[in-house]
Design a protein around this nucleic acid. Structure first.
Length: 567
RNA sequence: UGACCUAUGGUGUAAUUGGCAACACGUCUGAUUUUGGUUCAGAAGAGUUCAGGUUCGAGCCCUGAUAGGUCAACCA
């Protein structure tokens, strides 16, 4: 597939999400004067992962599609969980994906004043009250989904008393947990969120942006919709679990809005990936318990982890495009993500020679000390990527897997008496090998080469079934390669148990291979450069290496039909 | 026991709004290939959760089941 085909394919994609249809209808009906404003509202309490990428692509994508704008808004209403470290990383990751919020960077904390005033307004109109009860008592009074709640004895406090108490809550006169502000909605509602939801609580920890000027902080439900309103957001896209919050969202907007404009909440399905655990809480736990080296550990499904692993933003966006947005709780197959990565990297990456498990081959009839440079195409998919010269000599390394003493049927590589081509160089024939008597390991393979079969030469039409990658032993650079097998966990998230999820971590998700040999052209490779090691997969140069040599992370393996045949 | 949401090949999504169920991934064949990659050609695989109803005609509308999910944090 070339770039044009890909473009064609993308354009031919027929699906239009229900969200797109909703927005198109709203425009048609002239709602909000035809304006389209969306927002991406992360809480700065962790790093962004691939699930967020789905939301980001939608929020920015819909704005772009309809000529609108997308705001970046940090939902920082809970100071005990949040930190500037996360703010910075979130911005970096969104930019990496290729989206820009220009100057529209907002914080829910920017609206603390407005929200406070709105809360006072609700109190004055009899729509909110201070409750002195304990969390436990409030909780039991809420009832259950099938049984209505009962009203708090403080529900009908006088307005003046409520205002006074709320002000004093904010001055720090009361302990955390001693009082809350609740909206007066309906304790008998079938929707639990409407049973006089708590809208303000006392928190005395300093906020990462506002310091200690506030002692009361709004809850999500009291901040999100209003923030949307303050910013002129028209379409507030969020995940399915917020569906039951929508009546409350609308309830607050009804009491806040002063004109025809109103934001609309639309829910879509969250991303679930097989073998992948994406709960922010659990990712944080992995980092804290040092089960991974950090948020950007290449095993992490975080955007920075995937980046370090060698994923491209284009591949991630393509994947998101392929899975679509619906209201079905879907579990997407990682193989589709991996497909998207291969599709993108196949076009972009230079092919290089690297041998993961070296086995020395000695070409007995090749002159000792002779070195010749053979010419190789960097990327058969893209001529513009040019060619390179790779040194060839009497001793080369091939992959251990590429030699078998007693080969099975359909084995097209090297075995006693068999001929293969060393890619870009000569056809060689296996004449013998040295085996360790004790371990049975093959230590060296002896071959002869046919000088007339050099690539590009006259006799080069001679056909052999197999072509091997190789690295000249005298010129090879030692490298370390980290192989990643799937992202994370062995079982699908559906089967995941909450208590012992750490045991689901795939022990094979990181294998480190040392002593790998790579061709000398890689000496100039820079961190995050990506390559395709012939027949082995796509690899990305790591930036977190204490070793003097190159370290590669395997991005994704190639489709390997041989191992399937072998199975 | 309640409210809300959802149900289409193995997986994820479509179906011009009521007109022969299509696409992608995956799987399997074959061809080309100096990557067992890529590319190309082709195949198998669902009759749309079930039962009724409306209609000339239903994946789509109606009724009722069934299954799964969400909701009872001073988290977002």
């Amino acid at each position: 597939m070339n770039a044009d085909n890909l473009k064609e394919k993308e354009e031919s994609r027929p699906s239009i999400s229900f969200i797109e249809q909703f927005i198109a209808e709203d425009i048609k009906e002239g709602k909000n004067g035809g304006a389209i404003v969306t927002r991406f509202p992360p809480e700065p309490n962790g790093y962004l992962h691939i699930g967020h990428a789905k939301a980001i692509c939608l929020d920015f994508g819909m704005a772009n599609k309809f000529g609108g704008k997308c705001n970046l808004r940090f939902d920082d209403t809970n100071p005990v969980k949040e930190d500037v470290e996360y703010v910075d990383s979130i911005k970096e990751d969104i930019r990496w994906l290729g989206f820009d919020w220009d100057e529209r960077e907002f914080y829910a904390s920017d609206y603390f004043g407005k929200l406070y005033n709105f809360a006072c307004d609700l109190i004055k109109k009899g729509f909110a009250y201070v409750d002195d009860q304990s969390a436990e008592l409030i909780s039991t009074q809420k009832g259950t989904p099938s049984q209505p709640g009962t009203e708090s004895p403080f529900r009908n406090r006088r307005v003046e008393e409520n205002i006074d108490l709320f002000e004093r809550m904010n001055k720090g006169e009361f302990d955390e947990g001693s009082r809350v502000l609740r909206a007066k909605v309906d304790m008998t509602s079938s929707n639990m969120h409407m049973r006089d939801p708590i809208i303000y609580r006392i928190i005395k920890s300093p906020h990462h942006r506002t310091g200690s000027i506030w002692m009361v902080y709004p809850m999500y439900d009291f901040a999100h919709g209003q923030s949307d309103y303050f910013e002129g957001v028209t379409h507030s896209l969020c995940t399915l679990e917020f569906e039951v919050h929508r009546p409350l969202y609308d309830w607050f907007i009804d009491r806040l809005k002063k004109d025809d404009y109103r934001p609309r909440q639309i829910e879509f399905n969250r991303l679930n990936l097989t073998y992948t655990m994406m709960s922010k809480r659990k990712l944080l736990e992995l980092v804290r318990k040092n089960r991974v080296k950090g948020w950007d550990d290449p095993r992490m499904p975080t955007l920075c982890g995937l980046r370090r692993r060698g994923y491209t933003p284009e591949a991630i966006k393509r994947f998101v495009d392929l899975i679509g947005y619906t209201k079905v709780e879907a579990i997407n197959d990682v193989s589709l993500l991996e497909h998207a990565v291969r599709e993108d990297l196949n076009l972009k990456t230079a092919r290089v020679f690297g041998v993961l498990n070296p086995l020395k081959v000695i070409i007995t009839n090749y002159p000792e000390g002779q070195v010749e440079n053979v010419e190789l195409v960097n990327n058969p998919e893209d001529e513009n990527m040019g060619k390179r010269m790779v040194p060839f000599s009497r001793e080369v390394y091939i992959e251990q897997d590429d030699f078998m003493e007693t080969p099975p049927n359909k084995f097209f590589r090297l075995a006693p008496g068999m001929e293969v081509r060393l890619k870009g160089a000569y056809i060689i024939k296996c004449e013998g090998f040295k085996k360790n008597d004790k371990t049975g390991a093959i230590e060296e393979v002896y071959c002869t080469y046919d000088a007339d079969t050099k690539s590009g030469g006259n006799m080069s039409e001679k056909k052999v079934k197999g072509t091997l990658h190789w690295v000249s032993s005298a010129h090879a650079i030692d490298a370390e390669v980290r192989l990643y097998d799937r992202l994370f966990i062995n079982e699908d998230p559906a089967g995941e148990k909450d208590d012992d999820w750490l045991n689901f971590l795939n022990p094979d998700s990181l294998k480190i291979l040392t002593g790998c040999k790579v061709e000398p052209s890689l000496r100039s490779a820079k961190p995050l450069d990506k390559f395709q090691f012939q027949r082995l997969g796509y690899f990305c140069v790591d930036y977190d290496s204490n070793e003097p040599n190159l370290v590669f992370n395997r991005t994704v393996s190639l489709k390997d039909t041989w191992s399937k045949i072998n199975r």
